[in-house]
């Protein structure tokens, strides 16, 4: 390692150099990359128990098949991410099976229960849109070759999830009745989760190794805006209320609440009239949502007993 200094590597990757192995990296590059892929893998992995919670009660065999196909993709993507980490010398076994549940780096949204079919398809429509926004930026810009290659499959499949979500949101909204109401209720709590998904606003971040090393191309605020510009018009076209509106001339989206704001975990509602600081958001994230432990443990259910069986 240390073929280059950080400054040299930063300059090289900005000029188009593609990192292929650890020998090309600096320690800071490796750290930033490992952190990024861990977040990616944990997010994909924890989407699986969240999605299964509702998929197992899908309204029909057909819908159960498509919902389960999405879970299968997510597990495949998690597998790809952890495999990349393994090739960077990370002990992924410890990461997956020994890490305390509250150390998983998935977004707060995947610490929440997904209660019914309307919530599931809204999650596909909103959260997978967030995933695509983040990952397609990484795919376009990343200086790490193995990740760029892996993301071809991931991007293709996430697009299918998104289409599934949007098509079903539309279907339920057009049918009206209980299904439509459930989608509105889902969007009520999921939309602000999605806004938070992209993390701290740019003016709070002074230094960004991921951008310097070209592990991604867009800033948090740019990514958040990209998501808002897709999601808000979608909701507007479906007659769904969200606390934001888009300007039909410029296409720009404006939030109609003080972001970030308080989340009432008991009633699962956002308190728009109670803005909070980013330190308070971090505190809430660190305290984790209600399903965090159960979701992590569900992935580990038989691992210990089979490990012992095979070691005996």
């Amino acid at each position: 390692m240390a073929r280059f200094t950080d400054e040299e590597l930063m300059r090289k990757v900005q000029e188009g150099f593609i990192v292929e192995s650890e020998a090309d990296m600096t320690e800071s590059y490796r750290k930033a990359l490992i952190n990024q892929i861990t977040v990616q893998g944990d997010t994909e992995l924890m989407s699986a128990p969240a999605y299964w919670m509702a998929s197992k009660d899908a309204p029909s065999t057909n819908t159960m098949v498509s919902a389960t196909a999405i879970i299968q993709d997510e597990l495949g993507h998690a597998n790809i991410a952890y495999r990349l980490l393994q090739d960077l010398g990370v002990d992924t076994d410890a990461l997956l099976y020994d890490r305390p549940p509250n150390k998983f780096k998935n977004p707060f949204g995947f610490d929440q229960p997904i209660a019914n079919w309307a919530e599931l398809v809204s999650a596909h429509g909103l959260y997978d849109r967030a995933g695509i926004t983040l990952l397609s930026d990484v795919h376009r810009h990343t200086s790490y070759g193995p990740l760029k290659r892996a993301l071809v499959k991931v991007g293709m499949e996430e697009n299918f999830h998104l289409r599934h979500g949007e098509a079903w949101m539309k279907k339920l909204c057009e049918a009206g009745g209980e299904g439509r109401d459930l989608v509105q209720r889902a969007v009520d709590w999921m939309f602000p989760m999605g806004v938070e998904w992209f993390g701290m606003p740019d003016d709070r971040k002074h230094h960004n190794a991921q951008l310097d090393f070209k592990l991604k191309g867009m800033t948090n605020d740019q990514l958040r805006n990209t998501w808002l510009k897709a999601v808000v018009p979608l909701c507007e076209s479906l007659g769904l209320e969200v606390p934001a509106h888009s300007d039909p001339d410029t296409g720009e989206v404006e939030l109609e609440y003080g972001f970030p704001c308080e989340w009432d975990a008991d009633d699962r509602v956002w308190l728009y009239d109670q803005p909070i600081t980013w330190d308070q958001v971090w505190e809430r994230w660190r305290a984790r949502g209600p399903m965090n432990e159960e979701f992590v443990n569900s992935v580990r259910r038989s691992r210990g007993s089979i490990e012992r069986m095979l070691a005996a």
Partner: peptide
């Protein structure tokens, strides 16, 4: 099969269970 998508001993076998579940439902 579906009930083992999450609890299988490895991620790969969970993925296989998911695929087998979908096959059976199909």
């Amino acid at each position: 099969y579906g009930e083992w998508i999450l609890g299988a001993p490895t991620l790969e076998s969970g993925i296989a269970c998911s695929a087998m579940a979908q096959d059976e439902w199909g």
